[in-house]
Structure formats: C-alpha cells, structure tokens
C-alpha cells in the first residue's frame, strides 16, 4: 500500500495536475485571505470553511486521474496480478489524494502565521474548522475516487465527481422544493390541516438538511465541533471507498 501511495503521490508532481490544483487552491484561499486582510478582519476559521465551498472544483481535479488513468493506460492489470489486496490499492490512492489536501492546508498555516504577526486572533475555532475541512475532504475525495473508478476517461470522472458534489450541495434546495410539492399535493387531495402541513414541511426539509454534509458542518462556522457530523462524513467516505473497491473487484470476476 505504501508503494502505491508513494507512486500516486509523486505522480501528482510529475504531471501538471498537482501543481494546477495547488495553484487553484492557493489562489482561492489567497483571495479570501487578501480580502480579509484588506478589511483588517481575519477570521481564519471562516476562511478555511469558505474554501470548502470550492471543493466542487478542486476535488474533481485532484481525483479525476486516480483510477481512470490506470484504466486508460491498461496499467490497472497490475492491481489484479500483483500480490496486493485491492482495498490497499484503493486506500493507497485515496490517501495520496488526501495528502495533497494536507499540502493545500499549508497555505492556511502560512496565513495563520501572518495573521499572528499582524496582531490577529488564531483561536480554538480554527482547530474546529480544520477538522471540518478534513472531514469534508475525506468525504469528497472518496466520492472522487469512486467516480474515477467508473470510467477510463478522466474528464468523465471529473464531471461525475462535480455532479455528485453539486447534487449534495443542492440537497437543501431539493428539500424545500419537494416539501412545497408535497404540501401542495396534500392540499389538493384535502388531507392538509394546519398542524400536519407544518409537520410534513419541516420533516422533509429537515431530512434533506440532515443528509447534506455542508449543512451539517456549518455549525463549525461559529466554533462548534460536531463529532456526529464528522462521523457522518467519515462513514460515507468509507461507503464510497467500499463502492470503489467493489467496482475494482467486479473487473476481476466479470472478466474470468
């Protein structure tokens, strides 16, 4: 697994992809930091969480080649012939992508040092925001890894990752829309009372909000670390990695 991790991690810097992702991330985080600096009001926790909104662009770039590149080149056959478990392949590649996020985070470390130099505050909510940043990264990179396993075309993988993250980010809007539709239907078929309309409306919206990891972690904005939300992200990251593993394994038995 270590060998796969090393190979994948180094490959980020042997191709333009890693540098482009770093450039993009540096620009986004730098832009937010510069605005805060200009306003002389720097909340690093807010900046870190704001960058999470841009995962929809950054994650597809980082993960699009993880498995699809091997498929395209045919080098994925090594995974099936070498004496290595498939889950180690998935984990090695996944951790390599996550390590890149670790390098991304160095941007924030530099910004925190500058904030301190200029007499700003770097307090405990920064730690909460950092946990949240990595929890979301774990989830979205797992989604990207899964998307990369279903196609041998990097662009297709990137688009699939983008669409899945977009759908996740739009879950609250879907919830609002669906609850309005259900409430309308209830009034059409005349089963709506003031109380049950309210209950149904709230229940649907709450359910969709509950499913949206971005919504669940938004309390981190104000310094609340929610272990359940972190667990939610990590458990679904595990699910997508398992899905990836199953897709790789399918190739083994479907070809025999």
């Amino acid at each position: 697994m270590l060998a796969i991790f090393k190979r994948e991690f180094i490959s980020y810097f042997k191709s333009p992809v890693g540098y482009i992702a770093l450039a993009l991330f540096s620009f986004i985080s730098g832009y937010l930091f510069s605005i805060s600096f200009d306003e002389q009001y720097i909340s690093m926790a807010a900046n870190i969480l704001n960058v999470c909104s841009f995962f929809i662009i950054i994650v597809p770039i980082v993960t699009m080649g993880l498995l699809s590149e091997d498929k395209k080149r045919g080098t994925d056959v090594i995974f099936y012939t070498a004496p290595i478990k498939l889950y180690k392949v998935v984990l090695g590649k996944y951790l390599a992508a996550m390590s890149l996020f670790g390098i991304f985070f160095l941007n924030f470390a530099v910004q925190m040092i500058i904030t301190k130099i200029f007499g700003g505050v770097v307090d405990a909510p920064v730690l909460t925001a950092s946990f949240t940043f990595f929890a979301l990264a774990f989830l979205f990179v797992a989604i990207g890894t899964f998307a990369s396993s279903i196609s041998d075309n990097q662009i297709v993988s990137a688009i699939v990752t983008f669409v899945i993250i977009l759908v996740i980010q739009l879950l609250p809007q879907f919830g609002t829309f669906l609850s309005s539709v259900v409430v309308s239907l209830m009034s059409i078929i005349k089963i709506s009372t003031v109380e049950n309309v309210s209950k149904v409306h709230n229940a649907i919206e709450s359910a969709f909000n509950w499913l949206d990891p971005m919504q669940r972690i938004n309390t981190a904005q104000v310094g609340i670390l929610s272990p359940l939300s972190v667990f939610y992200c990590l458990s679904f990251a595990f699910f997508f990695l398992f899905l990836t593993y199953r897709i790789l394994e399918k190739k083994r038995w479907s070809q025999s």
Partner: peptide, 9 residues
Amino acid sequence: STLNIDTSS
C-alpha cells in the same frame, strides 16, 4: 448535539 463541543472563546 450532546456531543457538540463549543470551542468559541
């Protein structure tokens, strides 16, 4: 939210 940790100063 019983496990939530309020880290605000």
